[in-house]
Write a protein that binds this DNA or RNA. Structure first.
Length: 271
DNA sequence: ACTGGCTCCTGAGGGC
DNA sequence: TGCCCTCAGGAGCCAG
């Protein structure tokens, strides 16, 4: 499932394939994504030249000479620059032909992903305006997390998954980061000490950077722009390891549900 | 201002 | 062998 490292990997893979290319044609095979693709979606993109490929949170921002294509991969989405001679696969919902001869295909079995064409500054769009800082930016530090968490009773795991606080920390990396920080996931965010928040920030940054380095985590669906999986799943310490011995202290990893999401943690290592 | 719950969807996996 | 049921999950949205 794409989290920030997977989106970043896709972004880096797509940039050289898209930048400077002109969009020749757009075909939509399924309009019912997270939000219905409006009439005029195809026309808003056809003929445009791609100027930049960026990422904000888990959104891909494909800037053109006339508007920005904003893509979210949801939990099962992928974008690949395919050879058009390869037949379309099930759930290839949108195809964007480029003047390079390649075809950008958006595949998303669960259709939790989305596509928008934006005018003007993407940062001002309602979906981006209220987002917190990027986890790998200097704005996300211990001072910030400590200040934002004061008075908050919500569990720290749900707190760091709140995109209004910090973007890009999904279910897998939230559990992994809290393990490395040595902080139990159920603790109230507002009860964390300054030292705790420093360790949480450092762990989030370290885990995300490490995952980006190996191309993200592939558990079920995710493939990058070239159709290849990531390898971070081999470095998971707690996620989907319930009952298995902790890699550090051999205590059995525990699992519980927080906010409709599975949380994994080591009661020996995390306090 | 917070917090928790619901919702979209399909494939995987377990049970029988 | 095959069918049916349950569950997972990003994140916007709404109600309390």
């Amino acid at each position: 499932m794409p989290e920030l490292p997977e989106v970043e990997t896709t972004c880096r893979g797509l940039a050289p394939l898209l930048e400077g290319r002109r969009i020749v044609a757009v075909r939509v095979h399924e309009r019912r994504l997270r939000w219905m693709l409006p009439r005029g979606f195809e026309a808003a993109l056809a003929g445009r030249e791609v100027r930049s490929v960026k990422r904000r949170a888990k959104y891909l921002l494909i800037g053109t000479d006339g508007g920005t294509l904003m893509v979210h991969l949801g939990m099962s989405g992928s974008l690949r620059a395919a050879d058009p001679s390869i037949p379309r696969r099930p759930h290839d919902h949108v195809e964007i032909d480029l003047d390079s001869g390649r075809c950008l295909r958006f595949n998303d079995p669960r259709r939790f992903g989305s596509m928008h064409v934006l005018d003007g500054d993407p940062e001002q769009h309602a979906l981006l305006r209220a987002l917190g800082p990027e986890p790998l930016s200097s704005a996300f530090d211990a001072k910030y997390l400590h200040a934002r968490s004061r008075g908050r009773r919500v569990a720290i795991k749900q707190f760091i998954m709140n995109a209004g606080i910090v973007v890009g920390v999904g279910n897998i990396y939230a559990s992994e980061a809290l393990f490395h920080a040595g902080v139990a996931p159920g603790r109230a965010a507002g009860r964390l000490t300054r030292a705790d928040t420093a360790r949480v920030v450092a762990a989030i940054r370290r885990v995300l950077a490490a995952a980006i380095k190996v191309g993200g985590t592939t558990l079920r669906d995710y493939v990058n722009a070239d159709g290849n999986p990531g390898y971070f799943q081999q470095k998971l310490y707690v996620y989907e390891r319930a009952g298995e011995p902790c890699r550090k202290c051999t205590t059995p990893i525990r699992q519980r549900v927080q906010g409709q999401r599975s949380t994994y943690w080591c009661p020996g290592c995390q306090r």
